[in-house]
Simulated assay, not measured.
Amino acid sequence: MQDETPTDWLRAELQDTLDEDYEIELEDAALSLEISRIYREKHPNQMIRADYFRELLRLQSELIRLQDWVSYHKEKVVVIFEGRDSAGKGGAIKRISQRLNPRVCRVVALPAPSDREKSQWYFQRYVSHLPAGGEIVLFDRSWYNRAGVERVMGFASETQVDQFFDDVPEFERMLVRSGIRLVKYWFSITDEEQQMRFLMRIHDPLKQWKLSPMDLQSRVRWEDYTKAKEEMLMQTNIPEAPWYIVPGNDKKRARLNCISHLLDQFPYEDVPHEEVALPNRVFNPDYERDVLPPELFVPQRY
C-alpha cells in the first residue's frame, strides 16, 4: 500500500465505480437463458457495453454539473416519468439519480392513495413532494395516474377524468409560474416488447416482485391504455409543459437519450466552488483507544 501512487488509487476507484455499474446491469439480466437468448435475437443492434458505460459516465458527470447549478441558483426542478409497466422508467430514474446528492435530487414513487387521501383535492398529495429552491424531484409516476391506470382500471369515473383534464393544464401552469421547471417524459414501448419484459420478470426471481396483479391486467387492457395515453397526451401537452416521448424498446439507448435530452432543457453552467482542503488530524498522545468486545463486530463471512 505504501508504494501505491495517486494514479493507482484513482484507477482502483474507477474500477469500483464500474463494478457498481456492472452490478446494476446484472440486475437487468434474465436468469432464464432461453428467454435471454430470445431477447438478444429481438435486439440484434444493442450498444456495445463499453460504449454504453463510457457515455453513461459522461452524462452522469454532466448531471452533477446540473445538480450543482440547481443547488447554487436555488432552482426548482420537477421531472415526471410516465409510461406503460416495464417501459423503462425506473431504469432511467436510477441512472439519473445514481451519482447525485440525495439531499438535492430525490425520487417520489407514491403508493395507492389512502382513504383519507381519496377525500382530498386530487393534487394535494403530490403538492407536498414538490421541490424547494435547490432541489430536483423525479416523479416515478405522478398525478397522471388519473388519466392512466385509474381511468383504465375503473378507479376513477369519466366525470373525474374530465375534471382532471380541465384542471391539470392550469395546475401545471401554476407550477411553472411559481418558478418550477417542469419536464414530462412518456416512455413508449411496443406490445411485443412489453410481453417479452413481462416474461423475463416472471422467470427472474429477483424481479418477480415488480409484477403486480395490476401489471398483469395492463396486458389484457393494452388497447384501453393506448386510447387513454393518446387522449392524455392530446389534452395535457401544453406549451408551458410539453410532453417528450422516449422510444424505450432499447433500454440502454432510451436511458442515454433521456438523460441527454434532460440536460438540454436547462441553461446550466459551472458554478463557483470553495476549494476543498483536507485538514490535519488532531493528535493527542495521551489518548488510548479502547478495545471493543468482538460481539459488536459484523461476522467476517466474505
Rank of each mutant, 00 (worst) to 15 (best):
R65A: 05
V70G: 06
A12K: 14
H203N: 12
R173L: 12
V291W: 06
F266E: 03
Y52C: 08
R201E: 13
E41I: 14
V282F: 07
N249T: 01
Q98G: 06
E231L: 14
D290W: 12
E274I: 10
M232P: 05
Q160V: 07
I93V: 07
I202H: 13
E295W: 06
D264C: 11
A29S: 14
D191G: 08
D85N: 01
L211D: 08
I64V: 00
L18Y: 12
E150D: 03
W222F: 02
E275G: 10
D51Q: 06
W69H: 01
V298D: 13
R116P: 06
S61Y: 05
V161G: 10
Y144C: 03
A12R: 15
A254N: 03
E170G: 07
R253P: 04
A241N: 00
F53L: 08
V271S: 03
S97I: 02
R201D: 10
L256V: 08
K74H: 15
W69C: 00
E172K: 04
A92C: 00
R146P: 04
E55F: 00
W121S: 08
W222I: 00
L56N: 02
S157I: 04
M214L: 14
G83A: 05
W143L: 02
T17E: 15
R281C: 15
E4I: 14
F283H: 06
P294Y: 08
R99K: 02
R197W: 12
V168A: 10
Y302P: 11
S97W: 00
D140M: 09
D166C: 07
A29D: 14
R219D: 06
F53W: 07
R253V: 06
R221L: 09
S119C: 11
P279F: 09
S32L: 11
H129W: 10
Q300E: 04
P44Y: 09
C258F: 02
L18C: 14
H129C: 12
D270M: 04
T190V: 01
L18Q: 11
